[in-house]
Amino acid sequence: MKKFAALSMSVLFALPALYIPTEREMTFADGFNGASWVNSVYTSIPFASKEDEEISIEGGMPQYYNTSSRTNTCAPVAGAIVLGYYDKTYDELIENFTSARVIMGHVLYAEQTDAVDAAMARLYTSMKTNVTEGGTTVANFKEGLKTYVNEQGRNISYTQAISNEDIIESVCRQAIEEAHPIAMFVSKYTLIAPSALEAEAGSEDFYQQRYIGNHTVVCYGLRTIRYYDANGNLTEQLDLLKVATGYSYSSTGYILIDDYGMLVDGYEVDIY
C-alpha cells in the first residue's frame, strides 16, 4: 500500500515536468506595469582632466509620451518618436501634423498633439501591444512599424545594432552619422540626466537612476567620457547612449552601458 502510495506520489509530483514551458519572447513595456525605478545611486568621480566625446543626431528627437489609458506602451511611443523624427522629411508619416518648425534659424520639434496620439494608437494595434503578454515583442515592434510606414506610402529598413547584449559600435556610429535613430530594447538600465555630466574640474558628481524591467527607447547619440588623474592616468570611463526615454517628465537621458543594465536588442531605423 505504501509502495503504491509512494509511486503515486512520485508520478503525481513528476507530472509538472511534462509541462515544459516554451521560451517566451521578451516583451517591452514601461510605466507602472513594466520598467520600475529601483533607486538613485550617487556617484562621484574625482578627476584632474577629462575627455568628452559625443556624436548625436542634430536637433535630437521629438519628445513624445503616452497620455492614453493604455499600458505598457513604450514600444508604440518609441515608434511614434521615430515617425515624428522622419515626419520632418516625409510629412505624410503622421497625418494632420507638422512635426517641426524653424525658429531663429533652428529646427524645433512641435509639441505632441492629438495627431501624434492617434499615430501611437495605430502603432499600438499594428505592433500587437499587450496581445499575448504585457508589452510588445521586438518582432512585433519591427513588423508593426513597417506596416504603419508602408500604409503611409513609405518604406523602412532595419539594421541590427545590438549583438550579444552589446552595441555594434560601427553600426551605431554610422547610424548616428547618417542621422538614423536606433530603436533599442533594454532590460534593466541605468539612466543619467542629460545635464548631469557637465563638470569642468574637480569631480563629476551625479546620480544614476536604476531601473528593472524592460523598456524601449530611441537612441540618437553616443558619448564617451574619460577621466584622468593628475598623472594623466585614465581612472574612469563612462560609455553612454543618448536616448529619447518616452517619459513625459524626463524625455531625454543617457543610458549608461554598465554591468547593471542589459541591451537586449536594437535596430537602426531608416525610413525612405
Binding site: 515544459i20 514551458p21 517566451r24 507602472f32 513594466g34 520600475s36 525605478w37 503616452n66 528593472i212
Partner: peptide, 28 residues
C-alpha cells in the same frame, strides 16, 4: 518548474526602502 516558469518573466522589484517613487508608479 517554478524556476523555469519564473525565469521567463520579469523580475519583481526589490523593496524600495522609503516613500519615494518614480516611473513605475505614475500615469500621465
Amino acid at each position: 518548474v517554478v524556476a523555469v516558469a519564473l525565469g521567463g518573466r520579469q523580475q519583481t522589484a526589490p523593496q524600495i526602502p522609503d516613500f519615494t517613487f518614480s516611473d513605475e508608479s505614475v500615469r500621465t
